[in-house]
């Protein structure tokens, strides 16, 4: 479970050596867009030595590999042999790439006697958005991250700070995730100096159903963690509901402070409590 995931360029020693102190729930070590073609080997070597020799690592590590149609994809996957990577972030996912990645992973994990690995699909093309229902049921998938920069580039439209242009894509990601019990992760807010804008947009994204957000600067983490966490008010409400339910376990529906409580509301309360416990909020 995440609220915040922070992108760190795989070729940046300063960021890597501080990765464990950032407030992010997960660190995304980027071998793709943040790394120039000439530095792919350098980044891979640095990440390998960082993962294998650092005594302290972030709680959850996501590796963004290069896409499967590049010469770097297979070399990037070799980093799984470090057994330090929790999730793979696969770029430009659509139904065809998801099949190809899974077929390659099946053989790679078996041949190298490695444990299963969870995938986060980066949906950042029009095809990826339209085909999302086809690949969202994949057994390795645990989350979908919307990539709005590449998506708006694919659509040949301007990316704005209102994010109206990505409403449809956000909705597709949210519904596919909810239907398949995946985590919906929102696209980064790219203006790192506009924390009020980040707050407003994250509030809106959270109200739609996004459960986490990718960040591109450590200064975004506090805001994102706060917004995608249950509030104190929600936690107190959930605890009251849960307590009332425990007192009347055989009653299907009951009233609490004049409001009807039934199964879906009890389930929601349980989810809030689970999240609050996980993120040490209670």
């Amino acid at each position: 479970m995440f609220r915040s995931l922070l992108f760190i360029p795989g070729n940046n020693p300063s960021m890597l050596q501080n990765a464990d102190v950032f407030l992010a729930d997960a660190i995304i070590i980027d071998l793709e867009d943040a790394i120039s073609i000439k530095e792919k080997d350098n980044a891979r070597n640095l990440v390998h030595n960082y993962l294998t020799t650092s005594s302290v690592l972030p709680k959850q590590i996501v590796l963004r590999v290069n896409s499967i149609d590049t010469v770097w994809f297979k070399k990037d996957l070799d980093l799984l042999k470090t057994n330090k990577i929790n999730y793979l972030l696969i770029p430009k996912v659509d139904s065809k790439t998801m099949i190809e990645v899974n077929e390659y992973l099946d053989a790679f994990l078996l041949n190298n006697n490695l444990d299963e690995i969870k995938i986060i699909a980066l949906v950042e093309t029009a095809r990826g958005v339209t085909e999302i229902d086809k690949f969202a049921e994949n057994k390795r998938l645990c989350a979908i991250l919307l990539g709005a920069e590449d998506l708006t580039n694919d659509l040949e439209i301007k990316r704005t700070e209102t994010n109206q242009e990505i409403f449809y894509a956000r909705s597709k990601v949210i519904y596919a995730c909810a239907a398949n019990k995946l985590i919906a992760i929102d696209t980064p807010f790219t203006n790192i100096n506009d924390l009020l804008g980040l707050e407003k947009d994250s509030d809106f994204s959270n109200s739609l159903g996004m459960k986490a957000r990718a960040c591109i600067h450590p200064n975004q983490l506090e805001t994102v963690n706060r917004i995608y966490s249950p509030s104190n008010e929600e936690i107190n409400w959930a605890l009251e509901v849960f307590k009332a339910h425990q007192a009347n376990p055989n009653v299907g529906a009951f009233q609490l402070k004049g409001k009807m409580i039934d199964k879906p509301i009890i389930e929601r309360a349980k989810k809030i409590i689970e999240k609050a416990k996980l993120f040490n909020l209670m």
Binding site: Q17, D41, N42, N49, T52, S54
Partner: peptide, 17 residues
């Protein structure tokens, strides 16, 4: 001010190159 693993990884890349 590189840490040991950074020095090692840069050296390995330089060797490969």
């Amino acid at each position: 001010g590189a840490l040991d693993y950074t020095i090692k990884s840069r050296l390995l890349t330089a060797i490969e190159r």
